[in-house]
Simulated assay, not measured.
Amino acid sequence: MTQRASAALNPAAVYRSPLSVEDYLAARMISSPICLYDCEVPVDGATAIVVSAAETVPDLRAPVRIEAMAGVVEDRPSWEQWRDLTRVGHGTAAAMWARTDLRPADVDTAQLYDGFTIEVVWWLEALGFCGTGEAGDYVDGGERIALGGELPLNTWGGQLSGGRLHAAFGHTVEAVRQLRGEAGNRQVAGAEVAAVTNVGGYEAGAALLTRR
């Protein structure tokens, strides 16, 4: 519901109409406990991300810095073989945090992979925004992860409402827009640090982007 509310502020989002708790609970089941609105919305589209050494672009208008990033291949090489799906991003998150002095409390907005709703839950726990098993309480009511909350989450609507490009390009583009102050009426005030993740499990990746 929170991501749909953010999508309403994104003119490029696929689903912009309000989604109530009642709408969500009435949706048809796809594979229990995942219902229709727990699934990403594939779209045709394109985006471009230019990565360069900092010294080659001294005059850029609003460069965004990669503070830390990680991708860890761990456990078994197929989703259905994983022994504990609740830990699909923990190794990657730990490797990323080991490469920076920043900590979860420093993050101003999180753009977390949401191929399915449950993946956002896993990433919130893996990145240390809350403890393992605590994400339900962490997001309860939606205020903490809404615009203006403690951790504005998937402020463009995410893949659940904004639409899915491959991997997490939509999340990365939104993080860059937020750090540049270019997100319009969904802008997170004073955003300086953004967390971005993609997929999970053996494909998991995470990054911290900053405008410093």
Score class of each variant (00 low, 15 high):
Ala5Pro: 07
Ala7Gly: 13
Val14Leu: 11
Ala27Phe: 09
Cys39Gly: 06
Val41Asn: 05
Val41Arg: 10
Ala46His: 04
Ile49Arg: 02
Val51Gln: 06
Glu55Arg: 14
Thr56Gly: 13
Pro58Gly: 03
Pro58Phe: 10
Asp59His: 12
Arg61Glu: 14
Ala62Asn: 05
Glu67Ile: 08
Ala68Thr: 09
Met69Thr: 11
Ala70Asp: 07
Gly71Arg: 06
Gly71Asp: 09
Val73Ala: 15
Arg76Lys: 13
Glu80Gln: 14
Arg83His: 13
Leu85Gln: 12
Thr92Met: 03
Ala94Thr: 11
Met96Tyr: 03
Ala98Trp: 06
Thr100Cys: 06
Pro104Met: 04
Ala105Gln: 11
Thr109Asn: 09
Ala110Arg: 02
Gln111Val: 04
Leu112Pro: 07
Leu112Ala: 04
Asp114Glu: 09
Ile118Arg: 08
Ile118Val: 15
Ile118Lys: 06
Val121Tyr: 08
Trp122Cys: 11
Leu127Thr: 04
Gly131Glu: 10
Tyr138Ala: 01
Gly142Ser: 01
Ala146Ser: 13
Gly149Glu: 00
Gly149Tyr: 02
Gly149Pro: 01
Leu151Phe: 01
Pro152Ile: 07
Asn154Ala: 04
Gly157Ile: 05
Gly158Arg: 01
Gln159Ser: 14
Gly162Met: 00
Gly162Val: 03
Leu165Asp: 08
His166Pro: 09
Ala167Lys: 08
Ala167Pro: 00
Ala168Tyr: 07
Phe169Pro: 00
Arg177Gln: 15
Gly181Trp: 01
Gln187Thr: 11
Gly190Ile: 11
Gly190Asn: 08
Gly190Ala: 07
Val193Gln: 10
Val193Glu: 05
Ala194Leu: 09
Val196Met: 03
Gly201Cys: 06
Ala204Arg: 00
Ala206His: 02
Ala207Pro: 00
Leu208Ile: 11
Arg211Ile: 00
